[in-house]
């Protein structure tokens, strides 16, 4: 398998031309590996991650990414409210697995168990607490078979123990992949390559 990478060349971005969010940023994330994007609020961490995922286009500059999909864990849960938690996770599984409904359901349950939610597959997102939704959203991102894993503050709303458990799980699942983690918590970046951004 080709090594996953994201290369940011001289990228600038602004929602409002008078207030640039990123100004001439150049970075290279060569995988497999773990990179943490750190910095104060408003420094453009989230925007950089969205640019790297291709969700928005840079105002100037270029972003190169290795071919293949990106598993993205959003800051919000973004679970489909009309599907059960198990169905939400199953939608991230490969297409051929999804065709076999029973197998997909079993795999989704396994992923939910791994994030500490053993009995919620049949429940709807509205029936879960904030922390449980967060973990279900993490399970979906981890279940998605992609060489690049991007996570936007994935441990928000989790208690200390769950935070530590989920960080361990994410790092285990990121083996052989490229992990880009946006976080406010310096402890999350321990052992990772840390990229500190500052406001432009």
């Amino acid at each position: 398998m080709n090594k996953p990478f994201v290369r940011v060349h001289d990228v600038s971005f602004a929602y409002d031309p008078a207030k640039p969010v990123l100004s001439r940023v150049s970075l290279v994330f060569d995988g497999p590996g773990e990179d943490a994007l750190l910095g104060p609020s408003g420094c453009g961490k989230k925007t950089l991650l969205r640019l790297c995922a291709g969700l928005i286009a840079p105002t100037s500059g270029q972003i190169e990414r290795s071919p293949g999909p990106v598993a993205f864990c959003f800051q919000e849960d973004r679970l489909l409210p009309w599907y059960t938690v198990g169905q939400n996770v199953a939608l991230a599984l490969p297409r051929d697995v999804q065709r076999d409904r029973e197998r997909a359901a079993r795999l989704a349950e396994t992923w939910l168990e791994r994030v500490g939610l053993p009995d919620v597959a049949h429940m709807y997102p509205s029936e879960l607490s904030g922390g449980m939704k967060r973990r279900a959203s993490l399970a979906r991102a981890l279940a998605y078979d992609a060489p690049i894993l991007m996570m936007d503050e994935p441990f928000r709303a989790l208690d200390e123990q769950a935070h530590a458990d989920m960080l361990r799980l994410v790092r285990a699942c990121a083996q052989g992949r490229l992990l880009l983690l946006v976080t406010h918590d310096e402890r999350d970046s321990s052992g990772m390559q840390a990229v500190r951004l500052s406001p432009p």
Binding site: A53, L55, P69, V70, A71, F72, F74, E76, R78, L80, L91, A92, R140, Y144
Partner: peptide
């Protein structure tokens, strides 16, 4: 629109 973004990234 966030659900559309999610659908795009998860290859729907």
């Amino acid at each position: 629109p966030k659900l559309h973004e999610m659908a795009k990234l998860y290859g729907f």
